[in-house]
Design a protein around this nucleic acid. Structure first.
Lengths: 137, 137
DNA sequence: ACTTAAACGCAACTGAATTGCATAAAAAAA
DNA sequence: TTTTTTTATGCAATTCAGTTGCGTTTAAGT
């Protein structure tokens, strides 16, 4: 796992205490995070705007990606190596736990190949599973 | 297509002008609707609370179901016959158009069967496709 | 050390969705 | 039909996630 500072450097982002801590938080998190969850868990800032702006910047650099959320919140998870600095490339499924409401990336489950149907041109496929996660079972 | 009044009767809902018009609006809509879109298109009420409450009631009776939305809005589409009055049963995919931002139900595309994986117990599967819809192509 | 571009932090704002409560109207009962 | 009950409506106010503006701070390059 690359060090947070290295990652910020690679993506041309400034190494502030908060952003370092934020990357480390994502790395140590088994599932995904909302802005509010981040605010609870982080020490180096108390301002939600700072959090939102970091998330937007990270997403643009393809460091994190949005994942579906049970309550339609904006929720992020770390990207895998396949993502370049300019293009997201995800082919894994997401799992929403109906008990703890966390969203997990299921990197093992690949997306089905859907052929273009009746005039719909398909650019992206998302597979979202719901149920109960290992911790809640 | 059953008449709106019949549907309200079947689901033990009162036949108010607004709810009749709302069902007819859903029936005549090729895609799906948000509360705001409904407000634009409907005459018999001007109050968003009334709209939200009707949507909640309809969803509970399995008359409409939530569909994914590009901007995380709550968006609904009519249910198919498979849904009972107490249980939603959907096995179709959804399509989000990145141009007009509408969401369509693709009743032809069936969901892939995913086996339970590494401790995740799967109760529900959702397949969401993105791209451009026939009207926008 | 100086400069500048990126990041921060506070306040104020937006917009979707919700809640409370009093009123109206539909359906059921008398 | 009239009365009663239940459901639906409408207005005001609230909540809460997310955004915008703007002045200040700080990291990093010169």
């Amino acid at each position: 796992m690359p060090k947070a500072e290295k990652i910020l450097e690679k993506f041309n982002l400034k190494k502030t205490n908060f952003r370092i801590e934020l990357i480390e938080l994502f790395q140590s998190s088994s599932s995904s995070l909302t802005a509010d969850e981040i605010k609870q868990k982080i020490n180096s800032t108390n301002d939600k705007v700072t959090i939102y702006r970091a998330l937007t910047a990270f997403e643009k650099k393809c460091l994190i990606h949005r994942v579906p959320d049970k309550s339609n919140l904006i929720r992020y998870a770390l990207c895998q190596k396949e993502c370049s600095q300019t293009h997201h490339k995800h082919n894994h499924a997401h799992f929403i736990c109906n008990i703890c409401s966390k969203t997990f990336c299921l990197n093992d489950i690949k997306l089905p190949q859907i052929d273009n149907t009746s005039g719909f041109k398909i650019n992206k496929t998302q597979l979202t599973l719901e149920g109960s996660c290992p911790a809640c079972n």
